[in-house]
Simulated scan of single mutants.
Amino acid sequence: MLTRRKEPFRYSITPPMICWLEIKEIDQVPLKGKLAEVDLINISKSGCRIRTGLNLYASSHAIQANIHMKLSEDLHIFNGQIRWQKEVEPDVFDYGISLQLDGSEKETINAELRTLAGSRRIIVN
């Protein structure tokens, strides 16, 4: 499990929010991915945790993916890389995704998180 968190906290989404995972590349081989519904467990400006029944064998593959999420009103698509995988119960997996965001995308996430905080949908960890 590799982690390089730099932020002091993450925001837990309560209850988990539905978003979509699109696999773009496995081991530097481009794919035309389909959207898979996943649960967004937590998020920060540089990463997120998702939960799904899909076993992507991330420990043995380099996986680039897009996360399609609607935190408040608008649908956003963020580029990321799966950094780790953990089986939390039989056939249910958590994935840590390192988001590869530019400055404006980080600001977008900050604004969306403030909106969620106002509606008490997130918890600061």
Rank of each mutant, 00 (worst) to 15 (best):
L116K: 00
T108H: 06
R5K: 13
L31Y: 03
F78H: 05
A117S: 09
S59A: 14
D27G: 08
S60D: 11
N55F: 03
Y95A: 08
F93V: 08
L31T: 07
V124D: 07
L2G: 14
P15R: 04
T108Q: 10
F9M: 07
I77F: 05
K34Y: 05
E7Y: 08
I123W: 08
D91Q: 15
G33L: 02
S59H: 15
G118D: 03
W20Y: 15
I13R: 05
W84G: 07
E87I: 06
I18F: 08
Y57A: 15
G47V: 01
I26D: 01
Y95G: 07
K70I: 06
R4N: 14
I109R: 03
K24F: 07
E25T: 09
I43R: 01
A117T: 06
R49L: 13
N55T: 05
E22D: 15
Q81E: 15
E87M: 05
K106L: 03
G80P: 06
N42K: 05
L35F: 08
K70N: 03
Q28F: 13
A117W: 04
N66F: 06
T14L: 12
D39S: 14
Q81K: 13
F78V: 04
H61E: 01
T115C: 09
A65D: 03
S46E: 05
F9W: 09
G103L: 13
T3E: 13
K45T: 14
V92N: 07
R120C: 12
L116G: 04
F93Y: 05
N42Q: 02
L31A: 10
G47L: 01
D27I: 02
L2D: 14
S72C: 10
N110A: 08
A62E: 12
T14C: 12
I41A: 02
G33E: 02
H61R: 04
R114N: 09
P90F: 09
T52G: 02
G33Y: 02
D27N: 10
E22K: 15
R114V: 12
A117M: 06
I41M: 03
S44P: 00
D27E: 04
S60H: 13
T52P: 01
E25P: 11
Q100C: 12
M1C: 12
F9Y: 12
D102N: 10
I97G: 04
L31E: 08
P16C: 02
H68P: 05
V124C: 10
R4Y: 14
